[in-house]
Design a protein around this nucleic acid. Structure first.
Lengths: 220, 220, 220, 220
DNA sequence: AATGAATGAGCTTTCATTCAT
DNA sequence: TATGAATGAAAGCTCATTCAT
């Protein structure tokens, strides 16, 4: 049978990764079958092995690449900044934006770690630790400077990350809540939560004047 | 062959549920095999069907029972309270305590919904919506009274829940962080986050004086 | 749980046999499960074993009893008759009537022999051979007397039995075709088929004057 | 492990169908396991699914193909004929020959319809109805022309089919009874049975002069 | 780089049967 | 005599992976 035009070489790998992200996001790694994935890409299951080595490796690559990218871009965004409050605001903005833009990759990187083989798991957890460490450091600096007031830096780190990652599981583009509103709301929550003075940055205050009554959510 | 004494009737079901919770927590619903589960309980795989109707139903029952219990106990804890700030503090306390105590059930109820069949999924999502609704209402009341200040009530609901549910994925009994410390930290984060005046409840301020430097987490 | 009143002792066995006949007729022996059977009777699967020894034995008993009964009643009907033509007519009448009345048992005795264990199979086949032998003998006598004209007695035996047993797979009480019409039609077919002079028995000729146009059958 | 040479592609499917026919004929559809079937073909059970979609579909295909073939060849044999008596004789000859040649397929098509899923069952029954309709039409034409005399055309259709299909359950190649003898005997039975004048076709009369005494059958 | 056919292990579920109560 | 819980085998089917072509 003639093969589908346009799925040669590296393009096929990209198609596999893309379909993989979607299928893992939708069904979970365990529940996704390589036959499904192959069908999505338009090839036979066996042909996948011209592009990936194992199903496990596909997951590992997707997760690892995601976190590496996350870390690289975060460092880019923070480059040259010194004020803890500004850095925290940048962190919040970056994290929320990035997670809403690539919610599927994020979701996978958070919820499918369990399916990683021990060796792969450790690699990924180390990377994740580095990313978390950036936030911990910001908080520690801020507390040292007296800019933040938190009960426990470790807890605060986890809590803020949990809070900021939340939207990636309910955000729907085109819904009632715009990215900007979500970002503003989380920025306020975090900065208030750590006791940062926010008076200087007028936008937050302004944002809080928007209507906020709607009880109907957009979760599916 | 003689069967193991002491594993009859309802006891067996309870053992199945208990082992089920643990295995699903550890490997995920899809990755848990009924052979594994049966072995854990000490019976043959086929014998499971004297107690459950399908694997799917086991998951559904576990999740549904968990959320029902959660809702019932929350309402018990909130009974008779009227002040939004007090109610929010109770909500935070209840949620965090409950989730740390039954972290496995909570984890399952959060992360395995994807594995529920559509009909079961809808039932559970409706229950979860009722639980979330309690928090939404508290926030709405507080905003109406001027006690809270939030950008968007819906976002705040999701954010607070994400934040509060976080510990169940990293809390380890016996670790550096006690339940009390975690609870206090989250209470402060939430109340500060929504702009509630906390001066009246001295404990929170006090708690913030504890050391908080440790950067090493207890995530696995 | 209290047991259903009216299903004690021999009554239960009778209920099992009755339900067994129906279920085997509907689904086949292999496809009928003892759980199904037990449910039909209103007891638990394990309780069946107070009344039957094995599933195989239930089938064997049903088939054996059926053929024994068939043989006994045939001999009763033929008792004292000597004229081959009359005996053949009696055989046809008896066989068709009996099979339409107990079509399920007949069906089972014909189509589930395959499921009998070798030893049981042989017993039943011997019984069936005895029944077939009655017809063979009638035909042989008739041929010897010059009353019948058949190509091969053995073939004629099989053919007549196949022909006469047919109705039990399509007869529906209350349908267009009455038992009497079916009986008359088969009597004529058989007697004509073996070349028996039928002029003496006016009814057959008469019956042939009835309308016979309907092409629409009553098979389900 | 190297796979058996010579069992690739369509050959494997043909082997599966062939073995399937034999196993279903011997044990029945329900009693045949796919592991058995696969072993017969020389592959693993799972490999069957490279060639069939389900066990049910295998049965359906076998039965459907058989009846389609039957119908096609019957129409070929009857092509251009107009005389009802000749057509009936052709029908008898074709049916008996075909069924003795492909007795296993025929047996399955008759006795395993019960195992077809409702949708498949209906398709097959419709096809079977078409085949039966050919005979019904021949009889109706013959009756209209005064060539046949039957009590009821519908009954006669069923009866003749039952009679003619009989041999496929007891015929053994190489036994005492040759195909020709069986054919002649059934031709005579049917033509006599419907009251067709047979004097014109000398062979039938002749055939009836053969010995016909053997009481011992060749049923297994 | 793709295919189609194969493997062997695994899955959930059903089954006839047993047996202490 | 009935029950409920157990067994151990087997069922149909899916899976990730391999490999000759």
């Amino acid at each position: 049978m003639a093969r589908t035009i346009g799925s040669h070489g590296p393009k096929t790998l990209e198609a596999i990764r893309k379909a993989g992200v979607r299928l893992i996001y939708e069904h979970g790694y365990e529940a996704m079958s390589l036959r499904q994935l192959a069908a999505e890409v338009g090839i036979q299951a066996g042909s996948l092995y011209n592009h990936i080595s194992t199903k496990q490796d596909l997951l590992f690559d997707l997760v690892q690449d995601h976190i590496n990218d996350l870390l690289r871009q975060l460092d880019l965004a923070l480059e040259g900044k010194t004020d803890p409050v500004e850095k925290l605001r940048i962190f919040v903005g970056f994290h929320v934006s990035y997670h809403m833009t690539r919610k599927r990759e994020t979701f996978i990187a958070n919820s499918e770690l369990r399916s990683l083989e021990p060796k792969n798991y450790e690699v990924v957890v180390a990377l994740r630790g580095a990313y978390e460490g950036r936030l911990t450091q910001i908080l520690a600096d801020g507390v040292a400077e007296g800019a933040f007031e938190v009960v426990d830096i470790q807890i605060a780190t986890f809590a803020i990350l949990a809070l900021l990652t939340g939207p990636c599981s309910w955000y729907r583009p085109g819904g009632r809540l715009t990215k900007e509103a979500i970002l503003a709301a989380h920025e306020k929550l975090v900065l208030s939560g750590v006791g940062a003075a926010q008076t200087a940055t007028g936008e937050v205050r302004e944002a809080s004047n928007r209507p906020h009554s709607a009880l109907a959510g957009e979760r599916p």
